[in-house]
Nucleic acid binder design. Structure first.
Lengths: 345, 345
DNA sequence: CCTTCGTGTGGGAACGCTCCCACATTTGGA
DNA sequence: TCCAAATGTGGGAGCGTTCCCACACGAAGG
């Protein structure tokens, strides 16, 4: 039971394969009657043209590659959804690879994408390659790709690629400022991994907001959670036991937030009476509990679909100038009034 | 700047393209020196063979298709992770499509998979096709695929395909039984969509456990949440307002659980003192709150990787008998002692 | 009337691989 | 010593498309 080819369809319909090709692609002149006849035969044999043969012949595939650090992290899953929907809507096929945040796996994924001759690639880099050598290596890999590329979420320094990223600095700044406006003076930060670009940006946004408002950053209130749930949990336990808590925290990401909350609940501290906070991105299902879990909100699905759109726009016009879209997260206060009551002198 | 082909490599290395092909695939006889020479040239030119040309020639691709109802639902995201890792590990490339739980989109995804000539397909059906016509149509589509297939999570009746599914009946049964053993007599159910197979199975498991233990199913305690968060929330509000609560619930899935908890917290009821429950699948981050959120646990990542393994085993031996793996979820009680205190006379 | 253009159609080369076959060289056993 | 097997290599057909070119026909314009 061989798979049916364009030749089979042509023979059955009594036409040449060129005509069938024209019907499939809707190109050139074909008599209306012929179109009907050919389409009938295609339906009858349930024919689907081979993408491999087509892309070999056209020297161009209809696939879009996507490389994500972790496919089941809710944040990346949302990005995936956004990309997937847009890719699907525009008639492309999605090839997905996970890098598990490892440069080696990422390199392998890039090789797979090259073998597949993807028409375009969207990548959330495995890390931010702030190290010069690693950065140069990655840059080389991306250049070698030979297809349009969109860098998503994690910025790559100095790279003139299209990108969709978040304004981490201003996000952290406005989150911290919101706490200050609510009357807090002693504000801490659960910092992320300061070796990562986004970790530093968020830290600096926090510092700047403090400084601008005449508040000092107290090193005792800086918790190095490294974007990790377990680490954050342990550091927070320490801080609680040492009785070294500020009145509020800016928390650098959702995983740290989970570690933070676990420690807080364990110690039977209540939010925001004992401790207030604003987190970067919301926790899934946080709204179940009628507790004021303020956070920075960004349209994550939109991140993904915008990246895909950027790619398609580059297909249409390869010469257009590099476009860097920056998403500014908004502060969403779910318990602002409670925050105010916590204000100190 | 053309992409470099096997011919280019052959010319540069001073050998025939057949030899290069043998080096790439590690087949046949090639002199050790020649291997080194060819590999050097490939590295130098950063050559990657075209997957399209290869699969056209071999009449077989190295891609695996995956169709999921919702890519950003944490449950399916975990499945995706499991599949992705296994597919990657075995040197295949993953093509992903989302069906958004719509039969039409699913059919389009299947067409894409056929065009891509995927070597195998893993599918979580958009719905359970309990309707005869819909079922027959879907069955036809799957048969036409012409490649090995694994049905995942949602069983398709009467279909002799390899599959990995959950024993929903016994899961619901043991969850209900756990509540009974904890001393509860008045036990309700947040039922899922009873038009869906898994919804019915879970409902029947609950009924059976009640019956076997001499307890009656009180229709007042049957909440039809349809696996939907909002619907469950509203129905629960009603039940609370009408003061028609059992002492415990079996909850059919994680979305219902979210709706349930929202209503419970809103009414300031506490778990498990006012109301106890066991849910199907755990809520992400539920362990943040030191509250006894008992649930049915299943290794979701494993679901995905097992499906991939099943597929690969069928590649190795197309004639092997159909294998149906059934995962039995385990009851995980996080507050069993508290449940007991709630026991009635 | 012949030419030109618009419309409709078919054949063949090319895309970059794999795999079969042909052939050359070396090795080893009778 | 000779022949067969093992080792090593290259060429060409074929995979299923697209696309260029050739061609056929009728209508319109000179």
């Amino acid at each position: 039971m061989r798979t049916v080819t364009i030749q089979d369809i042509a023979r059955e319909a009594g036409v040449g394969k060129s005509t069938v090709s024209r019907v499939i692609n809707g190109t050139g002149y074909v008599h209306a009657d012929t179109v009907v006849k050919v389409k009938d035969v295609m339906t009858k044999y349930n024919y689907q043209p081979s993408a491999a043969a087509r892309s070999l012949s056209k020297k161009e595939s209809d696939t879009i590659g996507l490389i994500l650090p972790e496919v089941n992290n809710p944040f990346f899953a949302d990005i995936l959804k956004g990309v997937s929907q847009m890719v699907d809507k525009c008639g492309y096929t999605l090839i997905l690879c996970g890098s598990d945040n490892e440069a080696a796996k990422e390199a392998r994924a890039l090789e797979a994408m090259r073998r597949q001759r993807v028409k375009g690639l969207i990548i959330v880099p495995a890390n931010d390659y702030s190290n010069e050598t690693a950065h140069a290596h990655m840059e080389k890999l991306l250049r070698e790709l030979g297809c349009p590329l969109v860098v998503l979420d994690r910025p790559m320094l100095r790279m003139d690629f299209d990108s969709v990223t978040t304004d981490n600095f201003s996000g952290a700044y406005s989150a911290t400022e919101a706490l200050i406006r609510a009357g807090h003076k002693r504000i801490g930060i659960i910092a992320g991994d300061l070796n990562l670009f986004i970790g530093r940006e968020r830290y600096e946004g926090y510092c700047k907001a403090m400084e601008q408002n005449g508040l000092a950053v107290d090193p005792h209130y800086v918790v190095l959670g490294k974007f990790d749930r377990q680490i954050t949990y342990e550091k927070m336990r320490q801080a609680i036991r040492a009785n070294q808590l500020p009145t509020a925290y800016f928390i650098s990401n959702n995983l740290s937030e989970m570690g933070f909350l676990t420690a807080i609940h364990e110690a039977r501290l209540s939010v925001p009476d004992d401790i207030a906070f604003v987190g970067f991105d919301k926790l899934q299902g946080q709204d179940i509990f009628n507790v004021p879990y303020s956070h920075l909100e960004r349209e994550v699905l939109t991140l993904g679909s915008k990246a895909a759109q950027l790619l398609f726009r580059r297909f249409d016009n390869p010469e257009r100038p590099v476009e860097k879209i920056v998403i500014v997260p908004r502060v969403k206060l779910l318990g602002s009034e409670l925050l105010v009551t916590r204000a100190e002198g």
